[in-house]
């Protein structure tokens, strides 16, 4: 079971606003203004409280006008080839801002990598200090002195 999350209520609020934007658009696809308002509020809260959102959420929000980007409804999505690489180009239909994402099946975001998880990160233990000479018997002291001189 996961431990207590810091700013849990704030994250719940962000989640609600994101769902509310989707809910409003699903009811009436023409009602983009309200969805945009909810997404803008969500972005402002995240910025004010310095909360890191998941990249999958951030990619569905326009960075300029805060529109909820749904391909075919509020944005267009095109596949482009450049320098031997394939890119997904997403263009917001409100402000015409475009974003490019690399189409690489091998690419993993840092958050998705196993080493990003705290439990998988190996703790490097500091080298153990030498035992105190005063606590050692005389025989041990002699052998230690021999080892160090070598």
């Amino acid at each position: 079971m996961a431990g207590p999350v810091k700013d849990r209520e704030a994250f719940q609020r962000l989640s609600f606003l994101y769902q509310a934007a989707h809910c409003v658009l699903s009811q009436n696809p023409e009602n983009q203004a309200l969805a945009r308002f909810y997404c803008h509020t969500e972005k402002t809260i995240a910025k004010r409280l310095v909360l890191r959102q998941d990249p999958s959420v951030k990619r569905t929000l326009c960075r300029s006008c805060s529109s909820l980007l749904i391909p075919g409804l509020t944005c267009t999505q095109r596949q482009r080839r450049r320098k031997g690489q394939r890119w997904t180009v997403q263009t917001c239909l409100t402000c015409q801002r475009s974003q490019r994402f690399l189409n690489d099946p091998k690419h993993l975001l840092w958050g998705d990598r196993p080493e990003a998880q705290l439990e998988n990160q190996a703790d490097i233990n500091p080298s153990e200090p030498l035992p105190n000479i005063a606590d050692l018997p005389k025989e041990n002291i002699q052998t230690q002195a021999l080892n160090t001189s070598e």
Binding site: N28, E30, N31, A33, L34, R36, F37, C65, T94
Partner: peptide, 11 residues
């Protein structure tokens, strides 16, 4: 100016 957050009457 762009009326980004204004709800239209039909909605």
């Amino acid at each position: 100016d762009m009326r980004l957050f204004d709800i239209k009457p039909e909605q």
